[in-house]
């Protein structure tokens, strides 16, 4: 049989527990919060929203941009078969991201690479940092 069992009881063995301690991210156990995990960042030009969505096709993701929010919706389906172990999350997901800065709605792009979705929301011109020339009288 394919081992790596533990299917019925989710007791981590002492060995597993040791490794879990070891493998934990230094940022705390953020991973358990909501699905999918998100990274939000920005630079001078744009706001970036990244989500870990391995195995989800970009066509199966619905992105809605409202006035102040970006809604990320979709469904992850599980493969069919007789399961020995199922750890990968499946089902419908929905996350709402607040966007506090005006964005250029027509230039929003989304791309999926290696199971990571990146949504780029370019900032509207009025909030971009500008240098102003000061004329000396």
């Amino acid at each position: 049989m394919v081992i790596d069992f533990n299917t019925l009881y989710n007791f981590p063995s002492r060995f597993d527990r040791m490794f879990q301690e070891f493998f934990r991210s230094p940022m705390g156990d953020d991973r358990r919060f909501a699905y999918p995990p998100l990274n939000l960042s920005n630079d001078d030009e744009a706001i970036y929203v990244r989500a870990e969505l391995p195995g989800v096709k970009i066509e199966d993701i619905e992105l809605t941009l409202t006035d102040k929010t970006l809604v990320l919706k979709g469904e992850r389906s599980a493969p069919q078969g007789k399961y020995y172990r199922q750890e990968r999350p499946s089902g419908v997901f929905n996350r709402v991201i607040n966007i506090g800065v005006p964005v250029d709605r027509d230039k929003v792009t989304a791309a999926m690479t290696d199971g990571v979705l990146t949504v780029t929301l370019p900032k509207a011109d009025e909030v971009k940092p500008r240098s102003i020339n000061i004329e000396i009288a």
Partner: peptide, 23 residues
């Protein structure tokens, strides 16, 4: 950081299938 990636192990008629999330 190191992780144990989420893994599905299942059996179909033609063999065992293993799916591992590696985003």
């Amino acid at each position: 950081p190191r992780y144990r990636p989420a893994t599905d192990i299942l059996e179909r008629e033609d063999g065992f299938y293993i799916y591992i999330d590696l985003p």
